[in-house]
């Protein structure tokens, strides 16, 4: 058994977006090698939770820690965010796009997580878009862009993957491949937090179900500002 040193801990997360409280006092902890699947109705705050973990939405209260990670880096700097937007520049070639992220994003490895450091061309080959390497990314289809965006996660090792609807715009075969990649990441000691509507067959899964709170529990009126 691997030693469960890496641990993503969220305590009493509370966030407000646009003056509206999205969720309140949300806590969980996720240890190395497991995936947390966030479920819940549309608009309940799954994406907000992932973006909060990514450090993109400011916390109104609470803390996020990565235990066993690099102490001089914030948790979000040890995480990959794979969201709805592909962050692909159409004017650059596929390889240029990928090389940029490889050089720009800081790698984060620690004792318990070494991760994969594959060469960009190898990753593109694995994901089945190797033939497009020297084409401008403008010519890629939606699915191919998605895979290019995914390849970013494989060229820079980072222990935490935050994946918002990772299977969108992917066909069945690519979805299977994605699941394989995600399982490999878990097996190598990574952590995954993902929001999804579809069932994901992952090795070690925990679920976090978000549901609407009783309106009576909301902040009292006179505290509103």
């Amino acid at each position: 058994m691997r030693s469960s040193l890496l641990k993503l801990i969220a305590e009493n997360l509370t966030i407000d977006r646009g003056g509206r409280r999205v969720f309140q006092d949300l806590s969980f902890s996720l240890s190395q090698g497991s995936a947390l699947v966030v479920t819940g109705a549309n608009g309940i705050g799954k994406s907000s939770l992932l973006r909060t973990l990514a450090g993109l939405v400011p916390l109104a209260a609470g803390t996020i820690r990565l235990e066993g990670g690099e102490t001089d880096r914030l948790p979000q700097e040890q995480a990959h965010y794979f969201g709805h937007q592909d962050a692909v520049k159409p004017a650059l070639s596929v390889l240029e796009n990928l090389r940029f992220w490889q050089n720009f994003a800081a790698a984060s490895v620690c004792e318990d997580f070494t991760g994969s450091t594959l060469s960009p061309s190898l990753v593109l080959e694995t994901l089945g878009i190797g033939h497009t390497a020297h084409l401008p990314a403008a010519y890629l289809s939606a699915g191919q862009r998605r895979r290019l965006s995914l390849s970013r996660l494989l060229v820079t090792p980072r222990p935490v993957w935050l994946m918002d609807e990772p299977t969108s715009a992917l066909d069945k075969t690519s979805e299977q491949q994605l699941l394989g990649i995600m399982n490999d990441h878990l097996a190598s000691g990574g952590l995954i937090v993902t929001a999804t509507h579809t069932e994901l067959v992952l090795d070690r899964v925990e679920t976090l179900h978000l549901q609407a709170a009783d309106p009576a529990e909301q902040a009292p009126e006179e505290a509103l500002l």
Partner: peptide
């Protein structure tokens, strides 16, 4: 804020979460 709350009452807006380990 009150208007925003009025708009969000009918749909599951404000959320509380429960973590359920499914192992």
């Amino acid at each position: 804020a009150l208007r925003m709350r009025a708009a969000s009452v009918s749909r599951p807006g404000t959320a509380a979460a429960t973590a359920q380990p499914a192992e």
